[in-house]
Design a protein around this nucleic acid. Structure first.
Lengths: 349, 349
DNA sequence: TTAAATATTTGGAACGTTCCAATTCTGTCA
DNA sequence: TGACAGAATTGGAACGTTCCAAATATTTAA
């Protein structure tokens, strides 16, 4: 059953050449004679040779494992699944393979996973860090010359490359859109205030309000868990305000869905009675009823971009930390009140 | 920048012992003196030692890489993302890491990916094969003593373990449920007829009809792509039948969503005017309007189960091919006409 | 106090590859 | 024909670990 592995030496013997020659063939060297090459290849096929990257990697002693580590904080979220697919695309076509792990927002698990990947000799790492990740956590990696690209959530203070979507501009355009529909009291709902992403989106909200000539009211921003349940909670608080909002931008789509739930529970129809805009454009956003108006961030694109950046750093051998923010765009669907917009505008004219 | 790797020899030297002793410590052998062990550990921490699994694996020459390959045909589909998460859970807690790749239904890519994984010395493989995968494709792997577990789609003829959900029973219960609501003409919509999964589900449909004492009509089964678009197409064909169906079981949830779209396009409300039942219970199913009645298959559970099975085979060293079908359960929500059911039943009493 | 038993440690020799320096072929030119 | 350049090939010596058999240190029993 457990057949002895067929090695480069076996095939050398069978082909009547030396192991060095076989090795040369393996790496496609131009030094080897055409005839020899094809004979060796034939023998390899015949004996069912499989290349042992571990051994090769051992000798080459460098960052040549051709393995890319990918660590995400929540693979169940289709946003991150898409991201992983994007990474896989470019990584695969560059002849690398991807180690993928899920941390479920646990920093401990993240640490384990990263350590394990390191032991396996990854050539680079793409990570969407778990909440509250210490910026210094990836220090040893970069010190060892392993490029790291942080995506989605940035890690202020860490000297690594990162790709984040333009949270500020996205939220700003959402607010401006709502203002353009005639809304004056626009709430910002959901999200944990201690994260960089929250700060960016909130800043976008403020700029948007300002640009639309609307006042910023502290009570209109109500934070909560960035989840569906959090959305329900947030809209609940917002609706008891003496001067009720008529629209809301939400921290993300999950919150937005929760907000819709909460509205319905109070006999308000999202879209016609209250405008809601999400952020992320997850797959469910367009299938939902009403279809969610949201800021689309193209996670697959981020994945591809991050992978490209990482590969570039790997081949350059130099980890020049760069930060890019990717463009986002507002996708207008129904939840912002496409129909209602006309009515409001007529009223105000 | 590129620091010299610190090896077991370095730490041996620094700790004043031999490399063999360090190695013993590394594998937690009970042979080594407690004092020595802690000294060695201290030095390791101090010098920032990182274990080189490649080298270890090379020596151990066996299936001890602690890498599990996971290959899915469509990671964008949240069903498979969930599955991967399930695998990751058990694999990770057993101290393995997961190589994950996506084939996007391409057999070529699947071949590449599997070959690459093999070169990296995976200890085992979990795969949801791309459509039209040749059963013999995994022969070399098992011949080399690498356990393979096929999930979701089975590969008739391949001598590997597999886990599939109980497609037959699931579809049967769906049909029986609809029949119980008073429906007589129940269609089977969507799916490609050349797949094993299709055959199973169709068989379940037939048994269900039979059990309910309903006739099987060839024209009531209309196949199509197993996608949303396919669903639209299928319901279109079904509605022009002279003797229209009043309900449908669908190949999967995507088809079911398409069927709902198609119904609405014809001014029919899914649920009240026409009952539809899906299969898979993807995340969107419960958030949709109307919430989809569907057969829940717990992809994460399949992932966990598959991983356990694989790990068992790995540790046993023996690949006893076993096939398990996991239980499914019908989740009744709105799209089968929860409200309508009462009415129909009253009518028929 | 010594032999036997047990606990601990230790040098090599692998594992399968790549790299280097050196060697053996070719054919060409004088 | 001999010398020489280039093309093609080749035998070790790594790489960082584990394993084995053997050596050494420490106890225990008599």
């Amino acid at each position: 059953m457990t057949k002895a592995r067929v090695t480069v030496i076996d095939i050398a013997k069978a082909a009547g050449v030396s192991k060095s020659t076989v090795s040369l063939v393996l790496q496609g060297s131009s030094l080897v004679n055409e005839g020899t090459r094809s004979k060796v290849n034939a023998v390899m096929r015949e004996l069912g040779y499989v290349y042992n990257r571990g051994a090769a990697n051992l000798r080459q002693a460098g960052a040549k494992s051709r393995i890319i580590g990918v660590v995400v904080n929540d693979l169940t979220n289709s946003f991150f699944a898409e991201l992983a697919v994007g990474v896989d695309m470019v990584v695969q076509s560059a002849g690398f393979v991807q180690f993928l792990s899920n941390t479920s927002e646990s920093i401990d698990r993240q640490r384990e996973v990263v350590a394990s990947m390191r032991e396996h000799g990854i050539s680079g790492l793409i990570v969407s860090p778990a909440r509250a990740t210490d910026a210094a956590d990836f220090k040893p990696l970069v010190a060892a010359g392993i490029p790291v690209v942080v995506v989605v959530r940035n890690l202020p203070g860490a000297k690594v490359s990162s790709i984040v979507s333009d949270n500020r501009a996205g939220m700003m355009s959402a607010v401006k859109h709502l203002a353009g529909l005639g809304h004056k009291r626009i709430a910002f709902l959901g999200g944990f205030p201690d994260t960089a992403v929250f700060d960016d989106r909130l800043a976008g909200y403020r700029s948007g309000m300002e640009a639309a000539g609307l006042d910023y009211h502290q009570e209109l921003v109500v934070s909560s868990a960035p989840s569906r349940a959090g959305g329900v909670e947030a809209i609940g608080k917002a609706l008891v305000l003496t001067d009720r909002p008529t629209a809301a931008v939400c921290f993300n789509d999950a919150v937005a869905f929760g907000v819709c739930d909460g509205l319905r529970a109070r006999r308000l129809e999202p879209g016609s009675d209250f405008a809601v805009v999400g952020f992320d454009d997850v797959i469910e956003a367009q299938a939902a009823v009403p279809a969610l108006t949201t800021v689309s961030v193209d996670p697959q694109g981020i994945g591809r971009r991050g992978a490209q950046m990482l590969l570039k750093q790997i081949s350059a051998g130099k980890a020049e930390a760069e930060t890019v923010t990717t463009a986002v765009r507002l996708v207008v669907r129904e939840s912002c009140g496409a129909g209602m917009s006309v009515k409001i505008k007529q009223d105000s004219v």
